[in-house]
Design a protein around this nucleic acid. Structure first.
Lengths: 114, 114
DNA sequence: CCGTATCCAAGGAGATACTG
DNA sequence: CAGTATCTCCTTGGATACGG
């Protein structure tokens, strides 16, 4: 396993780098919803249960800075801002699909029924 | 997206549940090394660069409790303890493979060469 | 050789309030 | 409608020491 610096941070493995892009509680749920549709801030907020204003905003900033999503501001009142996946963000979708399936799998094993 | 309780904790999505099993800095590197070989504590420690005694021990405890790895103690001096994947743990391997590939992919995009 | 406990710093994440 | 800032709590993870 290699190790490298990027953006002021030391990474030990590719896995760590991957999790930096799609890890945490909210990044995947956000990316997942943008896979087909461009969405406004408020739509994302409404679509993702339990996410707080702060977390949605900060995670969007983070992923925008990483080049995974694009932010388009319309200079109107009231403000309108649209978010969409970039090519880079699109590459995360199949991975998220696998992780989600794995999650359901583990839920099964744990006897969790919905 | 459903939400459910498990083991004293509230989960909002299958993704969150999945990350609970394989997320964090060290779980995947550990599981990855157990995919073919049964390994002793000291071997794991030696094989995984930068992992601390505490993190290796605590993550092994955690995954043992989740039924992803098996712990076998040999009553000898000095102590000998072997760790191996369970069927459940084995299911994580293909997912880890995808995440790792994604990590390399993102490294490429970021212009990181090894 | 392997495990646990303790102390501590950094980041994740919630609640709330203020801005244009 | 969308974005920031602040305050605070909790979890993760590192360093270190002690125990069988």
């Amino acid at each position: 396993m290699p190790e490298f610096f990027h953006d002021q941070k030391l990474y030990y493995t590719p896995i760590e780098f991957a999790l930096n892009h799609i890890g945490g509680t909210w990044k995947m749920p956000i990316l997942w919803r943008l896979q087909y549709k461009v969405l406004r801030y408020g739509e994302l907020k409404k679509d993702i249960p339990h996410i707080t204003h702060k977390m949605l905003a900060s995670q969007l900033r983070d992923m925008e800075q990483k080049g995974m999503i694009e932010r388009k501001v319309y200079p109107v009142v009231p403000p309108k801002v649209e978010y969409s996946l970039t090519e880079k963000g699109l590459k995360a979708i199949p991975v998220i699909e696998h992780i989600m399936k794995f999650g359901y799998d583990m839920m099964n094993e744990a006897g969790i029924t919905l």
